[in-house]
Design a protein around this nucleic acid. Structure first.
Ligand code: MN
Ligand code: MN
Ligand code: ZN
Ligand code: ZN
Lengths: 144, 144
DNA sequence: TCCAAATTTAGAATGATTATAAAATAAAAG
DNA sequence: CTTTTATTTTATAATCATTCTAAATTTGGA
């Protein structure tokens, strides 16, 4: 099952309708490498869906996060929430200068997540494994 | 060096003044198990420092985060930023019902952080290793 | 003591997010 | 294919955490 399917299945299983807007948001989330914010999703979809409302983007994100199929990573120094549709255990790296979030391959994070699942006693809904700092590009550039 | 010292030293090393307000905020952060928010710090210190301003709390937190001695964990389902003065590698667990954040001992997270430091190429400033879900208490209680 | 820089404070402003209510849409029923 | 009804979307207003501003205060040094 590809990543878009994971999101749309989750909606269907809750009896929620898979509207064109929701499908577009799911697709964008599933295929983006960007860890987008609500605003970024809104702007990227507006050309295709001129009537799309920012409220719909926020509503859909909220649903997906509460279903546990999208992670809310929080701010990357820009005071805006970034989202991640990749819920496989992995490390996120945020640059507080250019506000980009990238993935980092990691040997240890899967074991970490298993440990948390096994020992915490929590009914886990999502993960936020993110380190923040200054990316190699921004360490050189005067500014971006 | 205890944790309060770590924070106050960081301020001094940048040539910043260790005012009574800043000292109180550092002490509270260093000794709290709570992962407090700016508002929580403000309310807990107001009895002792009636003139304390919320802006000072935010300013001081911002300084400490930018010095890398306090981590900004983000929201625990309450849409407010929680802070953590414990920068040793560890796992945080947030309950999205009661909005409490606790620490979880972990075997793997230290190795994870070393891996990120070694391989990312980022100048790292802070960590946000947090899993969110429903805590054992809230899984039982009707609500809190 | 006096001065200049740093800091705090109160309050206003910002802006991301959430709430509201009306319009549009989609499934269900007939 | 209509009618009905619940769901969803949309535009807009409201909320409220956080940041900004400028004046008052405090600090450490001359
Ligand atoms: Mn990611
Ligand atoms: Mn912690
Ligand atoms: Zn960067
Ligand atoms: Zn709880």
């Amino acid at each position: 099952m590809d990543r878009t399917e994971t999101l749309t299945q989750a909606l269907r299983q809750k009896g929620l309708r898979l509207t064109p807007q929701r499908l577009a948001i799911c697709r964008l989330l599933a295929t983006s490498e960007q860890h987008p914010t609500a605003q970024m999703i809104y702007e990227q979809l507006r050309p295709q869906y001129p009537s799309l409302s920012l409220a719909t983007v926020y509503n859909t994100l909220d649903i997906l996060v509460n279903l546990g199929v999208v992670n809310a990573l929080g701010s990357a120094g820009d005071d805006v929430v970034h989202y991640d549709a990749d819920t496989d255990p992995h490390v996120n790296l945020a640059c507080t200068v250019c506000h980009r979030v990238i993935d980092l391959p990691s040997q240890h994070v899967r074991a970490l997540e298993e440990e948390v699942t096994a020992t915490s006693g929590y009914r886990l809904l999502g993960a936020r494994v993110l380190y923040y700092g200054i990316c190699p590009d921004c360490q050189q550039q005067p500014e971006e």
